[in-house]
Design a protein around this nucleic acid. Sequence first.
RNA 1: GCCGCCGUAGCUCAGCGGGUAGAGCGCCGGCCUCGUAAGCCGGUGGCCGCGGGUUCAAAUCCCGCCGGCGGCUCCA
Length: 579
Amino acid sequence: MGGDPASPAEFVALDQGINARAALLIQAAARKVLPRLEPVGCSVDDRGFKCDFSLKEGEWPTEAEGEALGREAVSMELSGASIRYSGESEDEVLQLLEHTATYEVNGVKAFLEPGAKVEDGRKVKAVKILNISAHNPTAEMRFVRIIGVAFDSDEGLRKYLTWLSEAEKRDHRVLGQKLDLFSFHEEVGPGLVIYHPKGQVIREELIALIREVNKRLGYEEVYTPHVFRSTLWKISGHYRLYRDKMVLAKIEGEEYGIKPMNCPGHILIYKSKSRSYRDLPIKLSEFGTVYRWEKRGELYGLLRVRGFTQDDGHAFLREDQVKDEIKAILKEIMYVLSLFGFKDEEIRVYLSTRPEEYIGTEEMWDKATEALRSAIEELGMRYEVKEGEGAFYGPKIDVHFRDSLGRWWQCSTIQVDFALPERFGLEYVESDGSKKRPVMIHRAILGSVERFMAIIIEEFAGKLPTWLSPTQAVVIPVKTAAREYAEEVARKLSEEGFRAVADLGDETPSKKIRRAYDEGVPYILLVGPREAAEGSVTVRGRGNVQVKNVPLGKFIEALRDEVSSRSLKQAAIEALKPS
RNA sequence: GCCGCCGUAGCUCAGCGGGUAGAGCGCCGGCCUCGUAAGCCGGUGGCCGCGGGUUCAAAUCCCGCCGGCGGCUCCA
């Protein structure tokens, strides 16, 4: 609990074979006990199964009916269900031209996504329906989606439910309140974050990290306003393509829009004078706060908000510079990821290629896509290709991260853009005097500070690495006689640039220690007359690691090393431990 | 935005087959002055999200709105 060292979230991947089997049984059970639901399709992943039904007529299914469905599926299984694969086909129910695998379960038809492996040895012994919601594959169609998890034993389900309740404790929304990091308020508006002092410390640390990265990459920081005339949004195309997410206001007969992206502002900097091929690359960065009016139901804690700060950057490049830039950015992304200890299976890298509708020439696309691909490969990163999923203006690489509940969120992104340079008529003068169009790269390493912060809060369950911790050390006097010394220690640490406080209240030392642990403070320094006499501290790290009577100077030195190297571990206490 | 669920003290929650509210933590005060994961006692605290309706009477039932949660869709 409170004393555990920072550890990455353990995601429990579910058994897909059992869940596929359960998905089929659920459909057969529905035909039996809920005939107003007609199965239309089903899919399975490491978070369970999802089954879609068309609702023929009558009431929306209730939670109780959902549970009954789960029970029926298990009882069908226990009385010996027969499951037979009967081939794949174009979907005749949906007429969506989706490929589905068809099965017969006890003689009735059931569907599953093609390629899903169905367990045929073990049996489905426990099913839990987690959610019944609407699924709209198209604007006109509405299906009932039943989501659940299945196990081959009651024990499996019990363990899963325990994991779920543990995952809830890591939830950044819960921890954000408990650790006094940020809040949302009805009177402010949904999706708009208020950062408290401690949350702002984390924000600032993340921004400081990216400032260093930007410096290495050669990005110069700029600052642009939050509101631009609609004229600009019309040129950029946002006014037409992004309008439904923009906040627009008419003032004195003129229309303005709050920025949903930072790029147009940076483009104006490029355009502010004529550029030579010698000037390129030009790289601009901004911690730009943008506003996007996401639909109500899409908002989700810090992971999906309406106002957020991007660690944005735009590079204006000659075509031959594109690949090096991508590679350099990817390297820095990998460096940043290493600071947080994300494991391979906790991130997903995607390369999205040319969609059906696109601008620019095929040759440009091929070159840019190839640049992205070879950059990833040369760095040995694992990735998946999403064919045709690129933006209309260019191909892109996205990095997705998993939250405590196993959901994926897009954070880092590198996008090649042929469109905006064209729309804004960007040019540079080539060595032969001809005018050429630069290529733009949009990139964000954290993506948004908000989303990234949420991911790491969950990753560490609030027990952040010391360099990120809002309070790095709490000094606790174990005897009243040591109060002054405790204050002195805290003051010294502050003078040395650490975030330290002395806890001088009238409570017992035990209570203060407990509280400091609960708040995730990485170092608790205990001082009494003994320490005061010799100018030392007793250091307690996370996980009940304690080293007694460390000279304060030595602790400061060790802490400085830990913080400046942005150590993932509690390097200071490791270094101080007697060997 | 769509489907379902939810909204009681600063926080977590009880009360909800109608009779105007409770606990723990926190906060405040007192005692204790403490060597390692919640010391003891007392007090404070609520327009029961907001508005309307039903009723002799609404936290409790109904409707609308606001906000949240789980999905869908979309994205950093």
